[in-house]
Simulated scan of single mutants.
Amino acid sequence: MSNVGQHLLSGALSGFTSAIFLQPFDLLKTRLQQGDGALTSRKTGIMLRTAQDIAVRDGLVGLWRGTSATLVR
């Protein structure tokens, strides 16, 4: 395999891996940004509660919702 091919394959695998591992955090960030904006110090567990709500409603696989669109891009 040529050096260019190795770099292309390495970049594709790197992008795939980061999309898979970081998707749950991106989903949580988006859900928190869609909230009412009233994040105060008394709501320190809001990120965990949001993750639990998603897991209860959509199952654990729900944390990877939207991953297919990211991988297609």
Results as ranks from 00 to 15, higher is better:
Phe16Gly: 06
Ala55Arg: 06
Gly15Tyr: 08
Lys29Tyr: 13
Gln34Lys: 14
Asp26Phe: 13
Ala19Arg: 04
Gln33Thr: 00
Gly59Asp: 06
Leu48Pro: 04
Lys29Ile: 12
Arg65Val: 02
Ala69Glu: 12
Val72Met: 11
Leu63Ser: 05
Leu60Asp: 03
Val61Gln: 01
Ala69Ile: 02
Arg73Asp: 10
Leu9Ala: 15
Leu63Asp: 00
Gln34Leu: 12
Leu48Val: 02
Thr50Lys: 07
Leu8Met: 10
Leu48Glu: 08
Ser18Cys: 05
Thr17Val: 14
Arg31Trp: 02
Pro24Thr: 04
Leu8Gln: 11
Ala55Ile: 08
Ile20Phe: 15
Ser41Asn: 09
Gly62Asp: 07
Arg31Pro: 00
Phe25Thr: 04
Trp64Glu: 01
Trp64Phe: 05
Ala69Lys: 06
Ala51Arg: 05
Ile46Arg: 07
Asp53Asn: 15
Gln6Phe: 14
Leu8Glu: 13
Gln23Asn: 14
Val72Lys: 09
Arg57Cys: 01
Gly59Met: 07
Thr70Trp: 00
Gln33Cys: 10
Ser10Gly: 12
Ala38Glu: 12
Thr40His: 11
Leu60Pro: 03
Arg31Asp: 03
Val72Pro: 03
Ser14Cys: 15
Val61Ser: 03
Ser41Thr: 07
Val4Trp: 10
Arg31Ile: 05
Val72Ser: 09
Asp58His: 04
